[in-house]
Design a protein around this nucleic acid. Structure first.
Length: 441
RNA sequence: GGUCGCGUGGCCGAGUGGCUAGGCAGAGGUCUGCAAAACCUUGUACAGCAGUUCGAAUCUGCUCGCGACCUCCA
């Protein structure tokens, strides 16, 4: 099977590399999913929409992709590692609910939002709580390989030991000495041997509601181990692409690499892809900054920062107009511009059905498809791909006005380009009308 | 302080040595009974300074400004 040459920016090498799957035509793709103790905000959505584009394009190219995106539904302490609250337990206490009620509520909400944005569901959506055994097994292996130690029912990863064999800071190009020098000193409770050591398994205090028996006593898994255990289980010790938001690279992904190498002595993943942050008026949208709005608020416009509501597809189109590795700044002006552009695109798609075929042609469509593929093959450059679609929009509108002539073949090719790039790859739908028919065929 | 990145026309946003990216807004025009839509024309943009080069938004150096990560966050 022949595949188009696809170049992907790899965080590991800090450059674009030719993408070749380990076992073509199969591709293993793992993306760090949401922690379901609160509503997803738009920044989260951007990451998942970016990887939806990537997933869709790989499928379009003919790869058999196994796309794994986890749900984090356990542990994940807030604040200093041993002093903080378990997020799920805390939320459950506040709302007088079982932790799994919290998980269920926000998982359903997450799925609703993902559906609204027309993202394809992953092939497997494993949960941390469903893979406690796998995580325990992995921790046992890491301990027996000598890269972790237990103190009072908590297991820590020994970063300094690991660093003698492997390059701990390779993903973000940092030196161990610098990382140590810049690590905040945690007061008091230092059971850890090294400052950079992180927990693989955490001893449960009485107030921790989510708890499982383990060889080290009752506790719960550290945050990073779930992704290592689940990606290994479903994609193998080494797989093709691991993705997530840029904010995860320095800590979460760095630790994932360390865990996997300490466990099986191989790099877990060949291509690390990181999507950039969504900002609001120039600063990062985040839970702690309090400048976030929820997808529902964006759709309805019911938020002080928003002048009006925007449809999920207009927002998705807006995201397609920016490269996934660039920050995307939300502002009313930018959203309105995107909404208009989206409507113009959809209007041309509809008009194509009323273009009358001519015996002769006055247009050339061949460069459009080629340029769109070239753009996507260059690290999924959707903005350039979208620009090509507007070239097609112009041609369709002109033909509809009788100023250009399209043959039956031209019209069929235009429909095919739209089907492939607008619907299949960009994942847009026409929500400018309430009709359920998304097909141009 | 370390790491990564950014600064492009009114706004958003591609582009990594020479060839009009694109979208939105603005101006003029065509068409239309009017309007809308659409189409055509139109903008001599690349933070600043110096350098390399026949030629730089694009490479190099410096300066200024901004952001992200380094601590839970996609």
């Amino acid at each position: 099977m022949e595949f188009q040459p696809l170049n992907i920016y790899n965080t590991l090498s800090r450059q674009k590399e030719r993408f070749e799957p380990l076992n073509p035509p199969f591709v293993g793709l793992y993306v760090c999913g949401p922690t379901v103790y609160s509503d997803v905000h738009l920044g989260n959505c951007r990451t998942f929409i970016s990887f939806d584009l990537i997933y869709r394009y790989l499928l379009h190219l003919g790869y058999k992709v196994r796309y794994v995106r986890n749900i984090t539904d356990a542990g994940h302490l807030e604040g200093d590692r041993d002093e903080g609250d378990d997020k799920f337990a805390k939320k459950a206490r506040l709302e007088q609910l079982e932790p799994m009620e919290i998980v269920q509520r926000y998982t359903l909400g997450f799925h609703d939002v993902m559906r609204a944005f027309n993202t394809l569901p992953p092939s497997i959506e494993p949960t941390a709580t469903g893979h406690i055994i796998e995580q325990i097994e992995m921790i046992k292996q890491i301990i027996s390989n000598g890269y972790a130690y237990e103190v009072n029912g908590t297991v820590y990863f020994d970063v300094e030991k690991y660093s003698k064999e492997f390059n701990y800071g390779q993903l973000t190009n940092r030196l161990l000495e610098d990382m140590i020098a810049n690590t905040r000193e945690l007061g008091g409770q230092d059971e850890k041997k090294g400052r950079l050591d992180f927990a693989l398994w955490i001893n449960a205090k009485p107030e921790h509601i989510m708890r499982w028996p383990s060889p080290w006593g009752v506790g719960f898994p550290g945050w990073h181990i779930e992704c290592s255990a689940m990606s290994t289980k479903y994609l193998g010790a080494t797989f093709d692409i691991h993705g997530g938001g840029m904010d995860l690279a320095a800590t979460h992904h760095t630790n994932e690499i360390a865990q996997s190498q300490a466990c099986s002595n191989v790099q877990p993943c060949r291509f690390w892809m990181h999507t950039n942050m969504l900002t609001v008026n120039g600063t990062r949208m985040s839970k702690s900054a309090g400048n976030g709005f929820l997808p529902g608020e964006l759709f309805t416009g019911n938020h002080p920062l928003l002048e009006k509501g925007y449809s999920p597809m207009a927002v998705r189109f807006f995201m397609m107009q920016t490269h996934y590795r660039s920050t995307l700044d939300f502002s009313n002006e930018a959203l309105q511009a995107a909404e208009k552009g989206y409507q113009r695109l959809m209007s041309a798609v509809k008009k194509l059905n009323s273009v009358k075929a001519s015996d002769v042609t006055s247009v050339s469509l061949s460069s459009i498809r080629k340029n769109a593929y070239d753009a996507m093959n260059d690290d999924f450059n959707s903005p350039v791909m979208v620009a090509q679609l507007f070239e097609l929009v112009r041609i369709i509108n002109s033909a509809n006005d009788g100023k250009e002539k399209m043959t039956k073949e031209d019209i069929a090719e235009a429909k095919s380009i739209i089907q492939h790039f607008v619907f299949d790859i960009a994942g847009l739908m026409d929500d400018t009308v309430s009709s359920g028919d998304q097909s141009v065929r």
